[in-house]
């Protein structure tokens, strides 16, 4: 296990971590505002990837246009999911909303199996993402550079929107206190839609880059990443965007490093996230960046 191998794995880990971070942000923002685990988020990610796939292979559009279309359509799709499955239950007990979220996820998955077919599809990779870059004796596929860069740019835009615009301020207000925000004249439904829209755009971009890195599309591809990214959001401290990014990177790097340095545990790779989750929940239930709140009677 030399230095070059380590650097190669590090690059892999960082790009996987970036993808997890992008998805985790969607979970954390929705949870921050609605206190709801958006189980369908992983499926929105899958839908985004399939839209990009079909616009490249069936409509033969250039890749950048396909990615743009995928982001726009996925954004609309995410908002529709919210309006159809979550909005009618705004005042219901949390268990009902959660079951509705699981149901929505289940419905999207099954629709995808019927519409897209259950057989795996190969995501076409534009040449620029598939070059092998050699630095010294470390060879890294170029997509591993693009993923963190694109993620970084998206993150900066997101943080700007959340911290410096009026809509962002309204988002923060709703997540602090839903009722009070409404009383202050904030159109909560609009903010919720906006949040779902942003989360879905990030999920679509995450899905496309996921396709570039792991070009194997199946209708259930969003299930595992979805669960793991929710865990990443919890580990970082749910409701906190920086926490979600941190959690995503811990998870991505952790998974890659386990496989790289403890090959005998490769089969347990998928369990890593869940073990991490349980350890964090027991030691620091509010997550790494979260604040501990005591329950008021």
């Amino acid at each position: 296990m030399g230095m070059s191998n380590f650097l190669q794995q590090l690059a892999n880990g960082i790009s996987l971590g970036s993808l997890y971070a992008l998805l985790a942000i969607g979970y954390t923002m929705v949870y921050g505002i609605l206190r709801l685990i958006n189980f369908a988020h992983g499926d929105i990610f899958m839908v985004g990837t399939y839209i990009a796939f079909y616009s490249m292979t069936s409509f033969l559009l250039p890749w950048w246009l396909s990615f743009l279309i995928a982001m726009i359509l996925t954004c609309i799709f995410g908002i529709i999911v919210e309006k159809a499955a979550y909005k009618p239950l705004r005042n219901s007990p949390r268990i009902s909303v959660m079951i509705s979220a699981i149901g929505a996820s289940f419905l999207i998955e099954n629709l995808a199996i019927v519409l897209f077919g259950g057989r795996p599809k190969a995501f076409p990779i534009p040449d620029m993402f598939n070059k092998v870059v050699k630095i010294g004796n470390v060879s890294i596929v170029s997509v591993n550079f693009y993923i963190p860069i694109i993620t970084g740019i998206l993150l900066l835009i997101l943080l700007y929107v959340v911290n410096n615009t009026k809509t962002g301020m309204a988002m923060r207000a709703v997540s602090k206190d839903y009722e009070a925000a409404r009383l202050m004249g904030i159109d909560v439904n609009k903010i919720v839609s906006f949040t779902f829209g942003i989360g879905s755009v990030l999920a679509a971009m995450g899905g496309i880059m996921w396709g570039l890195k792991f070009p194997n599309l199946v209708p259930l591809m969003g299930l595992m990443p979805g669960l793991k990214c929710f865990i990443a959001a919890v580990v970082g401290g749910i409701g906190d965007i920086r926490g979600a990014v941190l959690g995503g990177f811990i998870l991505g790097l952790g998974e890659i490093m386990i496989v790289a340095f403890l090959p005998s545990l490769t089969g347990y790779r998928d369990a890593f996230a869940f073990i991490l989750l349980i350890v964090i929940l027991l030691l620091k239930p509010a997550g790494l960046m979260g604040k501990n709140l005591t329950e008021k009677v």
Binding site: R35, L36, I37, R94, M98, L227, F230, I231, V234, G267, Y268, D270, A271, A273, F274, I275, L277, I278, L281, L282, P285
Partner: peptide, 20 residues
């Protein structure tokens, strides 16, 4: 010791661990 959503995710996590 956990509640609501956290309990749901933790139990889901355990069942996945068992499966793995």
């Amino acid at each position: 010791r956990l509640k609501d959503d956290y309990l749901a995710i933790a139990t889901l996590g355990f069942s996945e661990i068992i499966r793995v």
